[in-house]
Amino acid sequence: MTSALELRHVSKVYGSGPTEVHALRDVDLSVERGELVAIMGPSGSGKSTLLTIAGSLEETTEGQVLVGGIDLASVSRAEQAKMRRRSIGYVFQDFNLLPGLTALENVTLPLELDGIPSKGAREVGLEALAELDVAERADRFPDELSGGERQRVAIARAVVGDRGLLLADEPTGALDSVNGEAVMRLLRAATKGGVAGVVVTHEAQLASWADRVVFLRDGHVVDQTVAPPGPESLLAAADRR
């Protein structure tokens, strides 16, 4: 089966000579549809670089990135842009909603850019907003929405249409832990619906919503969790106490 995202021996170097910075070194990673993977690591470990490279927002120095089995280096820039619009959804820390557009327009923008007629885009967009429980706020502008609502709209925009890959950089932003958890529930639900999700975070509680946690350090993947054995094991542990 083709992975939704595959990084093969990816390295990324910024600058050259004495100012050279190795942001990623020989990173291998594959993420399947239906799987939510968290990337954890200290500041400067390469987390955000990994995400921008996976989302084709940056090029690798070495190695290959395959999205849905397609090698990003093998397609034209125009094709890459199309893939970014159609196959990849992004959720950013500061939401990045366009202030001059309503919640619904923010969600439908990538669809319309992709040539989908606005009536059809509107229907699909409303559906995505409804799934995230913010359909009744569709005609509000970002500054009329609460932090939690803005984040829901941002997620709706990232999953709208037929996206196979969802990339999120510290997606709970400045939300408190309970609202942050709600965001992780939504991301998890989106991946259970068949999308591959990659979340970059430095917070262990948020990472623990993922099926798999990958640890980055100095640009290397140094470790990852094994599939959790299931909640029953906690009860067994409590029994032994």
Binding site: A204, S208, W209, D223, P228, G230, P231
Partner: peptide
């Protein structure tokens, strides 16, 4: 890694 694996189990609950 070990602590986060335990956290994953609580989060699953």
């Amino acid at each position: 890694r070990h602590v986060i694996e335990v956290m994953q189990r609580y989060t699953q609950v």
